[in-house]
Design a protein around this nucleic acid. Sequence first.
DNA 1: CCCAACGGCTTGAGTGTTCAACTAATTCCC
DNA 2: GGGAATTAGTTGAACACTCAAGCCGTTGGG
Lengths: 174, 174
Amino acid sequence: MSVPEEEPRWLTEPEQRTWRSFLTANRLVFDQVERQLQQEAGLPHAYFEILVRLSEAPGRAMRMSELASTSLSSRSRLSHAVARMEEAGWVRRKPCESDRRGQIAELTPEGLAQLEGAVPSHVEEVRSLLFDALTEAQREALLEISDAIIDHITDGDPPWPVVPDGADRPGQPA
Amino acid sequence: MSVPEEEPRWLTEPEQRTWRSFLTANRLVFDQVERQLQQEAGLPHAYFEILVRLSEAPGRAMRMSELASTSLSSRSRLSHAVARMEEAGWVRRKPCESDRRGQIAELTPEGLAQLEGAVPSHVEEVRSLLFDALTEAQREALLEISDAIIDHITDGDPPWPVVPDGADRPGQPA
DNA sequence: CCCAACGGCTTGAGTGTTCAACTAATTCCC
DNA sequence: GGGAATTAGTTGAACACTCAAGCCGTTGGG
């Protein structure tokens, strides 16, 4: 109804095509990842990511707020998610010693088993959806592009370290 | 719980980094697009996309099933979404002449106004989130990569024509 | 010391998405 | 032509996410 006074900088035609393709590619990939994970392991991708982050943390435990930011989740979302996963027995909540406001989420053995059960087919799916479609040069370009976007948006303050520090097991995609 | 018998093809370390960055970049971009559109125009991105597709269709009307596939929406999702947008007065349902099972969704003037009100700030957001982060070469690479992914997944049968055919107005991102 | 501001986390209502089940019209094909 | 299979679309229940509000702890001046 109300149109801003200034004419916005429209997208050029190539930009628009890029945006639409980017959007489409993303929907296709992530919708399928979501479906696959839900079917094979009965968990949404957001939960999977939370479990991955927890599994990589020292002691397989992490402060709620830290877990929220590393898994790109709002606090609210994480709260709901951990509540559900606690019911499922995959996660335990513990009070935080140093700050009585805090909560620590800890991955249970059952949660780890759940995660490890979900990983193989998920990895397979990611490979077949994404990497099988790309040449090595494209893969590399995609990494650089993604990092450029992340840097731009977070202003050089990425939500998690680029190189995961968990060293005792093969890396998990998240 | 049940682990497949064959060791899956693990992701290489560069592949894993690429996947994580891709995932992160995507979340950052699309979460923000969603938030922005919700705040400024009070509609989710999925609804916005539906309105865009409708606005580009001849007669600003389209069969439900066609609309579903061009907007990358499930039939169920579209049904719910159109129901809501019909309540809001943005869309009208009409019976389909040639197939009495069919329904035709038509964009109302109010719906068009809603869309046109939402576009400028959305375009601005897309530009500042995505294109401001990329060089022209990267933008081009992103287009090629996205198209490669789309082709791979849809097996050369993209859900909508690459070049939008609406000609009487500046292109809208979706 | 105390009160106000802040930070960490949870909660509940509202909304969107999914999945499976369902109705109804159409097509296939014997 | 008639009945099975298919296609179009809707519906409701289950679930996840968002937003705003709220509850404690903690911190930082006066």
